[in-house]
Nucleic acid binder design. Structure first.
Lengths: 254, 254
DNA sequence: CGTCGTCTTGATTAACCTCAAGAGGTGTGG
DNA sequence: CCACACCTCTTGAGGTTAATCAAGACGACG
């Protein structure tokens, strides 16, 4: 499904402003970006591995996953993306993908032409820096995921994912870090954490039994943030929120 | 150990030119970068997790690892870096690190001030794009590592690492993909692959027993590239070499 | 010559996977 | 409105991979 673009770059701009300072003119330029509106069902692949693309995907609603595919068809999710994320902004400088993007829920996205994004980056050096910083943030999350998958046990991995998503949802204005909507199936979590769905199930049960959280339908409620963060060895440094003074963080209660 | 900077940006420029097109003026600007020369011993930490830095590390000789540290002191290496890599170029836009950098061998590096790099990016939009692209390449390798650690068994992980290093060494002009110097200890490989040194040892033995490679002292010789690539499910797409027409690839025989 | 780092080997253990089956919920078509 | 299919979650039993623990061999270096 495709239609003309309702202008809704505000969440994306807000995300950039978490880490970058942009002038009014630069902010206007971001808000003026145009894209093609799409609505996709859950389990739809939006970008396939190996494709060369000329657009980037801005999420308006729902959530997507970036994945790498194995020969046997098995998938490893390498990143989760929520509304406000331009989930493959880096494809502007690397349009031939090794990865794919899939809709993990029903989602609405805007496809923004690379040409527009490149034009902005070339015209406004500070926008180029902000885009570069966004890619660096993405890389920082990837590095943290390597550490989680490589060195932590299953329970800590799941705990860390929930801490990460809590922070990111709160930063995106979609709930608080201890209470947010996250309608991931246990299989989707497994694909991301390098585990099997069965084992994710047992680890979530363990966390519930410890009383640190509940997950009913798609609502995550973290009852004991400190304990969950302790289990996960969660440190928010990797979210790269130090780049801008806290006064510019919108709606964040530390 | 520190001294005045002998200008040796040529490897770094060559690396950028693998994926980006830069004019003569832009290339000159890169070559004119100045840095502070350091010689470090193996096992020296160059950047510690949590530090805020105002320089980036260009490797002239030897090799470094980027790592994440667990509470118990255990380390997960998230990237290996070889001569020509500016291993934390992304720190220009994210100077407060969640990671650290350590010398995996005796190495010589140049510390390039963020200010110089930022000035270049702001003055030359195409250099900004090239730096952004370099960070995207870094992120692409990180994503591939997640997939390896999350979904492949130990033998395939080790095989993939050797394929990756072979390609990168060849691209950097430091040998061929089937024959290169790689003086990693089995413990360093284990830290990177999410394994124990004991198990890395057994996997290397298995690969040697299959006749696909030999590793004596620091020399890697891959006798059967196709089989090793098959074991590893290695596809070079993730190295992002499609950005520039092959005529610009220096000294590569496909 | 002795020490230290690295590699190697063996035995045991633990974490996680695989396979299998059932329960609960939801959407769909007759 | 009910029957059925399908998806997700759950539980159990048994199997496999890789970790852990321990010790010896080898080589480099002082």
């Amino acid at each position: 499904m495709t239609s003309a673009a309702p202008p809704d770059m505000s969440r994306f701009l807000k995300r950039l402003l978490l880490r970058s300072v942009l002038s009014d003119i630069e902010q206007e330029a971001i808000l003026d970006l145009q894209g093609r509106f799409h609505r996709v069902h859950a389990h739809t692949d939006i970008v396939l591995p190996g494709q060369t693309i000329d657009f980037a995907c801005l999420i308006l609603e729902g959530w997507l996953g970036r994945f790498d595919q194995m020969r046997d068809g098995g998938r490893q999710t390498t990143a989760f993306h929520i509304p406000g994320d331009m989930c493959d902004l880096h494809s502007v400088v690397a349009p031939t993908t090794g990865w794919g993007i899939t809709a993990l829920s029903t989602a609405t996205i805007l496809r923004i032409p690379h040409a527009s994004l490149r034009a902005l980056a070339l015209a406004y050096p500070q926008i180029a820096m902000a885009f570069w910083r966004d890619t660096a943030t993405d890389a920082s999350l990837l590095a943290k995921w390597i550490a989680n998958v490589g060195r932590k046990d299953a329970r800590a991995r799941v705990a860390h994912l929930l801490c990460e998503m809590g922070w990111r949802m709160e930063l995106a204005g979609l709930g608080t870090r201890t209470s947010f909507q996250f309608d991931a199936t246990q299989e989707q979590i497994a694909d991301a954490m390098g585990l099997t769905p069965v084992h994710v199930n047992r680890m979530l049960q363990a966390l519930r039994a410890e009383g640190v959280l509940t997950m009913r339908s798609s609502a995550v409620d973290i009852h004991d943030w400190d304990q969950l963060a302790d289990i996960a060895e969660f440190e928010p440094t990797f979210l790269l929120l130090n780049e801008v003074p806290p006064t510019q963080w919108a709606g964040i209660t530390p």
